[in-house]
Amino acid sequence: MDTFAINLLNGLCWGMLLFLISVGLTTVFGVMGVLNFAHGSLFMLGAYVAMQIMEWIPNFWIGLIIGPVVVAGLGIFIEVFLLRPVYRRDVTFQLLLTFAVLLVLDDAVRLIWGPAYHIVDPPPLLSGTISFFDQSYPLYRLFLLCFGPVVGLSLWFFFQKTRWGKVIRAAALDREMAEGVGIQVPRLFTLVFALGTWLAALGGALSAPYQSIGPSLGEKIIIESFIVVVVGGLGSFPGAFIGAIALGLLESFGTMFAGRVQMALPYLLLIVVLLFRPRGIFGKEV
């Protein structure tokens, strides 16, 4: 029983982190139709920038607030100068372009911060542990566990209930129509991409006290977040949430029971879902 509970907790924590990363990816796809290969690198950049700020001003929360905003600024730059010219082109061009951005960012990080590993401490408030079933469990993970749904719910609220959110959804559904009623779609897209970047970087900054920071952080995470997004249904918030939790749980329980097959589990999930629900769990069928 206690093994089960701890594994559940492990899986949910990892799932929350995956959710924080995937939610930005799915937002950008849902609104702009762009599948951003560089999303993982922006996640990594969020971790690095937050770490750098925490080094200058030794306070976790300041780093967590400023870091992602700085990265979001870079996101605006990427959208305006690189993505805008390729919106009307095939999705593969967007993939390739963002792949090029990935190459540049990954190497740039290594040039700036060097190839060594870095670690970031959790804030003093969350650095303790609490006991579960005679095993101690880090408070910071439980914080992540609560933070994920908060981010998800606020995003959902933003898109469903606020005027801005509705405008964005309208623009996503029918660009021409939105332009017709006077919505400045290009500026809106910039904003959405900045939001997506901010979310990626926020995930990165939040993951910093959880895992070591190195130049491969983005590469490790990108395929898994692609899987989450596709499994959940491209552009769907609840989909990203369910997909992330499913993958998190699959990996934690897989460690316990799957043995050698474990490495294949995320891909098995992807295949099974796509075969039976071609558009993902929450995707709209055509």
Binding site: L82, L97, L103, V104, D107
Partner: peptide
């Protein structure tokens, strides 16, 4: 040694 960086920088204008 930073060939990924240069490759990325070359790739962007090619795609554009």
């Amino acid at each position: 040694e930073n060939w990924m960086f240069v490759l990325g920088l070359l790739l962007i204008p090619i795609v554009l």
